[in-house]
Design a protein around this nucleic acid. Structure first.
Length: 931
RNA sequence: GGGCGCUUAGCUCAGCUGGUUAGAGCGUGUGACUUACAUUCACAAGGUCAGGGGUUCAAGCCCUCUAGCGCCCACCA
């Protein structure tokens, strides 16, 4: 067994192990009536994605649960996939084109889409390879893409369904427009950031009396070119008499009226607001109420259009400066003040978004939100940590309609067709119109292109140019991945099938059967694990879609993990340049080290620096070396195994525990092992992963390695000891597997190669009969005594190799027995020569003393003891203990405490008080004898 | 403007229904080739749990106020 290197080398092991898992189909799952299902759907990374720390955290958490549940006997499916990520991917490919000096318009829609697919085929699974590096136990045979044919079918189905239900409509509204991406965005896709801006006070002269004017305050002076009114509060006395008067809009010289609207806040600015109905959502509403003109002054690229007069052709910010200059020149700019305000930015390219009036498609959200609120309120879906429940409910209660159309090319095209003839003539089947209030002239919503217009019979039909918001496909993820709605295309074509087709169709039908079975078996899924910023984009919408289309929640648990930040607390991101690349950490420290370190730092937001990954690396190395030690000692060289001799792995631990008289440390390590396993299970079940890792770390390193292995070193040839170290190691490795999959598999192959992969093993089962608190207390006495002896060595500079004597003074018979039985262990661990237990003795001259529990002990150190130092050492212990005793006794004298505190608490306080008093007495005796 | 989180050792954080003497890792100091592991081992130092007030027999934990830091949401131009 000495072929094991002294250090664990993750680089050699990891890829080999991952291949081994894949070749043995260890990630594959199927609907299995004999097992209970457990399912997680991956938050599909963008095809443009490159593994960052956020992914590493998110996917490690999922992998831990997936592996844990598999080892618990569940049919544990982790459903993988990627997202086509409309805007993000289109941007990447457009940048690539720009390098060639081309635009997407140069290519044309069809060529451009072709180019995108090529890009996707080439780079789209980068992230998948990286997830494999991370060890993810996804069932890769089920890999999905949100633009697969089946998936597209689901998207169309959903659009048509919602349209028919009256929940999708088209309309002209103010939406968030990204001038760089040149598309509409949803409210969620416009991220608000506080910017230091200015508030400009501009004079609007009266038409009849140009020397007088009303001053309006605005942060966006360029929009004034589109003003069609000035609004004041009807309650504002300052302006009461001016309502209805006409002003001249400066620069445009357009007459505009002063109107009264209750939404105006008299306390802000001057109390008079310029109204730009085409460029501000608030003003849009005012404009509708007062039937104002909607003047659009911008092109889609945010350059001013022909409605902007002399400023036409200027960029919006350029125009702002020019307008301010012009106003200043004309003495119409009263003043400028500093003003912080939130400005929306495109979540894909960070350009400032423009509120823009345009015709878009929307989903009416309130009816969908209602049941989704209910299921969370009823606890059918639980958030962990629970505080996210409030965040979710608050957003859902105030949900706004969802703008779903995007003016880009990469995505699911709207299944909407316009009849050119109907929209021309406006003629429409009146019967249909009355049936569907949302029906608009010439609009046909259909999964496939209709041959002719159902209203007028025209064949002049064109499909809507827009594509859908990426999240309009993502929200179907938990069921669309299983093939829902199981396309009925086959039936439609049934009449014309020939022999060839029937063969393909039977294959297809078989596929559909399996998919249906899978959906039935795995849906609703078990838990969704994601980041907080995704709650609105995705989690909330999946809940709504699940309830609407499956009539069932998509998952019962949502675990929200923290955000990964750098050591200074800034969010890690490529653009900030503060990111630690997980692949570099894997390269340098190993995947298990990355995973372990990430999780032990999780719980809240993670503040990471490179050094933090050393914990995991060191722990992996510890596991490696402990295993190495156990393996090296399993078969003593002098006693080679023979055919009839059982291997250690074949013994039954329960039997040994019952039949053989195991020594205290062995009973102790078993009790600790099962106590720890029990606690780890409970921690994982409540998603306290950092706690679980702390438990396994503490047990394995400090209890198993530091104490148990050290204790058994000198009796390693004992068969029972060999069985025990093997069994404890083997169980620890199984318990560790979900957290550190690679190293545990590597070790497993050396511990029990005949059993196959560790992935097929069960978790260690908690043996309650071996958990024994009394044993743990007894062992604690031994541990404390050894620690105390080591302390004396350190205090008096006794070289570690030098053997010392110890005299233990103890009257309690059980304690005498305990110390006597375990004296070999104590002697060995503390390098003791003579070990004497006596019932009565005065402090020997020139000795160091200490008290542990009820035991006083002395270490004779001729010529080394400095009496004043020893005295002050013991006195400080006395005073420490006296402080404790004081507060204990104060409590015990308090009648309120005695009468109101629970009996057990009072009893244990009394017990403690006695013990401390006894200890003080013993220490005082030592002091007395020191003189 | 609303909502949420954080403040515990030099640093990063545990401390889950209130019950002894508040823990860990890193860092620091001292000592050690004692070795399965120096990515190691042993020992030690280091904290009036952000501050005030309250509830309780008992508060790091519950309530309340204050301060600092951070995050999210919101159409005050």
């Amino acid at each position: 067994m000495t072929e094991l290197a002294t250090r664990y080398n993750p680089k050699e092991a990891e890829d080999k192990i991952y291949d081994f898992w894949q070749k043995n189909y260890l990630f594959s799952t199927k609907a299995n009536s004999k097992k209970k299902p457990f399912c997680i759907v991956i938050p599909p990374p963008n095809v443009t994605g490159i593994l960052h720390m956020g992914h590493a955290l998110n996917n490690t958490l999922q992998d831990i649960i997936i592996r844990y549940k598999k080892m618990q006997g569940f049919e544990s499916l982790w459903m993988p996939g990627t997202d086509y990520a409309g805007i993000a991917t289109q941007n990447v490919v457009e940048r690539e084109l720009a390098q060639e000096g081309k635009t997407r318009e140069d290519l044309g829609r069809e060529e451009f889409i072709k180019r995108l697919w090529q890009w996707k085929d080439k780079y789209g699974d980068t992230i998948i390879h990286q997830l494999k590096k991370l060890g993810c136990a996804c069932d890769w045979s089920r890999l999905r893409f949100t633009m697969d044919d089946d998936y597209s079918n689901a998207v169309k189905e959903v659009f048509v369904h919602l349209y028919k239900k009256g929940l999708i409509y088209r309309g002209k509204y103010i939406i968030n427009w990204c001038p760089r991406c040149q598309t509409a965005l949803s409210d969620e896709e416009a991220q608000h950031k506080d910017l230091k801006g200015k508030l400009y006070y501009i004079k609007y002269p009266f038409k009849d009396e140009p020397s007088k004017f009303v001053v309006v305050a605005t942060t966006r002076p360029e929009t004034m070119l589109g003003d069609t009114a000035v609004a004041v509060s009807p309650k504002d006395k300052r302006y009461k008499n001016l309502i209805g008067k006409t002003l001249t809009l400066p620069l445009m010289e357009r007459p505009i009226k002063i109107i009264a609207d209750s939404t105006v806040d008299p306390k802000f600015g001057t109390g008079a607001v310029k109204v730009t109905p085409a460029h501000d959502p608030n003003d849009f509403e005012i404009g509708k109420r007062h039937k104002l003109e909607f003047v659009n002054i911008m092109q889609p690229d945010a350059k001013l259009n022909e409605n902007a007069g002399q400023f036409m052709g200027m960029d919006r910010f350029e125009a702002r400066e020019a307008i301010l200059e012009e106003l200043e020149e004309r003495n119409l700019l009263e003043k400028t003040t500093d003003h912080d305000h939130a400005v929306g930015h495109c979540y894909r390219c960070h350009t400032i978004v423009e509120p823009y009036l345009s015709k878009q498609w929307f989903v009416k959200m309130k009816p969908l939100a209602k049941p989704a609120i209910e299921v969370v309120k009823k606890g059918e879906i639980k958030f962990t940590p629970s505080r996210w429940t409030k965040v979710y409910l608050n957003w859902m209660d105030n949900i706004q309609d969802w703008c779903i159309s995007r003016q880009i090319w990469w995505g699911h095209r709207l299944p909407v067709y316009y009849c050119q003839k109907c929209s021309e003539t406006g003629s429409l089947n009146s019967k249909f119109k009355s049936q569907n209030a949302k029906a608009q002239d010439g609009i046909i919503v259909s999964k496939t292109k209709p041959e002719k217009c159902p209203y007028c019979g025209s064949t002049d039909l064109v499909q809507d140019e827009d594509v859908l918001d990426t999240w309009f496909s993502s929200w179907l993820w938990p069921f669309a991945i299983f093939g829902w709605p199981f396309s009925t295309q086959i039936n439609a074509n049934q009449t014309q099938i020939n022999a060839d087709k029937s063969a393909t169709i039977s294959v297809q039908s078989a596929k559909i059967c399996v998919q249906k079975e899978d959906l039935n078996y795995f849906y609703p899924t078990s838990v969704l694990i994601t980041a907080p910023e995704i709650i609105f984009f995705w989690v909330a919408r999946m809940i709504m879609a699940g309830l609407e289309f499956m009539k069932e929640i998509p998952f019962s648990d949502v675990y929200i993990h923290g955000t990964v930040r750098d050591a200074k607390g800034l969010k890690m991101s490529k653009s900030l340049g503060n990111a630690i690349d997980p692949l570099n950490i894997i390269e340098e420290f190993g995947t298990d080290a990355l995973r372990f370190s990430l999780i032990i730092n999780s719980g809240q937001d993670l503040f990471l620096s490179k050094e933090k990954f050393e914990v995991g690396r060191n722990f992996a190395n510890k596991i490696w070396n402990a295993s190495r030690f156990v393996l090296m000692n399993l078969q003593p060289k002098a006693d080679p195994p023979t055919a009839e001799k059982k291997k250690v792995s074949e013994f039954d631990l329960c039997q040994i525990y019952q039949k053989e008289k195991l020594d205290l440390p062995s009973r102790w390590i078993l009790s600790r092992l099962y106590t720890t396993i029990d606690k780890i299970n409970k921690a994982i079940d409540k998603y306290s992963f950092n706690e679980a890792e702390n438990l396994v770390y503490e047990f394995f390193w400090h209890e198993f390695c530091d104490w148990y292995l050290e204790i058994v070193k000198d009796k390693i040839s004992d068969k029972n000891i060999q069985i025990l170290i093997y069994k404890v190691l083997e169980k620890s490795i199984r318990m560790l597997h979900p957290f550190m999959p690679f190293i545990t598999e590597e070790i497993w192959q050396k511990l029990a190669p005949e059993t196959g992969s560790i992935m097929n093993q069960s978790l260690p089962h908690v043996q309650k009969q071996m958990i024994d608190k009394k044993t743990e207390l007894q062992m604690q006495v031994i541990i404390d005594l050894v620690s105390s002896l080591r302390n004396i060595r350190a205090e008096w500079n006794i070289p570690p190799l030098e053997k010392i004597d110890v005299i233990l003074k103890v009257t309690d018979h059980q304690a005498i027995k305990l110390l006597d039985e375990n004296q070999a262990i104590i002697k060995n661990l503390s390098r003791i020569n003579n070990f004497n237990i006596v019932e009565e003795i005065a402090r020997p001259k020139d000795s160091a003393s200490a008290v542990v529990g009820r035991v006083s002990f002395f270490v004779p150190l001729t010529g080394l003891i400095d009496i004043p130092k020893e005295k002050s050492r013991i006195e400080s212990q006395i005073s420490q203990n006296e402080n404790i005793l004081k507060s204990l006794n104060a409590r015990l004298k308090n009648k309120q405490f005695l009468s109101r505190a629970p009996k057990e608490v009072v009893a244990s306080e009394k017990q403690k008080s006695l013990e401390i008093a006894d200890k003080i007495e013993k220490l005082k005796k030592v002091i007395k004898e020191l003189k």
